[in-house]
Design a protein around this nucleic acid. Sequence first.
DNA 1: CAACTTGGATATGAAATTCATAGCCTTATG
DNA 2: CATAAGGCTATGAATTTCATATCCAAGTTG
Lengths: 174, 174
Amino acid sequence: MNTPGPDDTLCPIAHSTGLVGDRWSILIVRELLMGQSRFQDLQAQTGATSQMLAARLKRLEADGLVERSAYSQRPLRHEYRLTAKGRHLMPVILALRTWGEQWCKPDGEGPATRMFHRACETELELDGQCPTCGVLVAWTEMRGQPSEAWADERRQRAADFKDHLRAAPGQPQD
Amino acid sequence: MNTPGPDDTLCPIAHSTGLVGDRWSILIVRELLMGQSRFQDLQAQTGATSQMLAARLKRLEADGLVERSAYSQRPLRHEYRLTAKGRHLMPVILALRTWGEQWCKPDGEGPATRMFHRACETELELDGQCPTCGVLVAWTEMRGQPSEAWADERRQRAADFKDHLRAAPGQPQD
DNA sequence: CAACTTGGATATGAAATTCATAGCCTTATG
DNA sequence: CATAAGGCTATGAATTTCATATCCAAGTTG
């Protein structure tokens, strides 16, 4: 009776949130945009459980945001990549980044990713202004560079996840 | 063990999604940005159940996105408004709008909300470009105008919700 | 002044989602 | 043949969300 639902409405925001209106989907898209493509890497960096990840990837694929392709035929392994539709979520991710940096960080500890204007290689303001050019830069004209600290954190996460895997499957301990 | 969690990370996107990484929060923020402020209006336009709405408003208030104030002392009634922190989610909402319009709409039926450049009153492209000025316009320089169809849909939703209320509380029928 | 309405919620139990943990399958490797 | 890597699926418990009903205080009606 309720739930106007993502489809019975003209509102584009309701449509969008119907597809990516949950924490996991957003984090998965973030990872794919950062260039990760393998199941385990996505799992390690998002912190999703394997079934959450599998379910979300399936839904993202069904919704046309993600494409699955085999990167190895012999043991048949797949990788996940964003489609054009998926890549165009970049502005959403960037907006969440800006807001998170401005309003959710404990103090001024510098952005996790520094963004640069491709045209002049100037580092951009959080809001996308280029101090050199004095314009708001489109996302297609930006280049991102993770800070050392953020890269370290991600490496750490990857390592922890490998350990976590090593601990679980076989025998719990002994 | 898993869940890097919104707080144990430098990633601003994880922080953001920790606060507004769910469908209802986003739709509620959308409504507040559109100027709605009363519980029932929020409920009617988002389609959330009253407890979802109450819970989310409470959380949004605790997180500093929303402020509650009494608009009537006598029967003590409250209204909800975005704080500066909440208002600055506009770019996220606009990005979701753009993406929804470009990738989720059935066909070209015109945007639900038309956006204009305050400076020149030109209608903006979906991506925020101003055809007249040739620049990407910042959200603070925009003005939105709901289409007639979208306004109608919202009026309809409000009316349906009133009916729905009238039907439920007393006796189902007879 | 009893009955009803309005705005803003809370209570309850059922249904759906998510979680932690464990296991499966295929191929390669020792 | 035992083990490992990579990518999932199964299971049952814990948590969240839902639909529906109810509550409460203050006006309004009659």
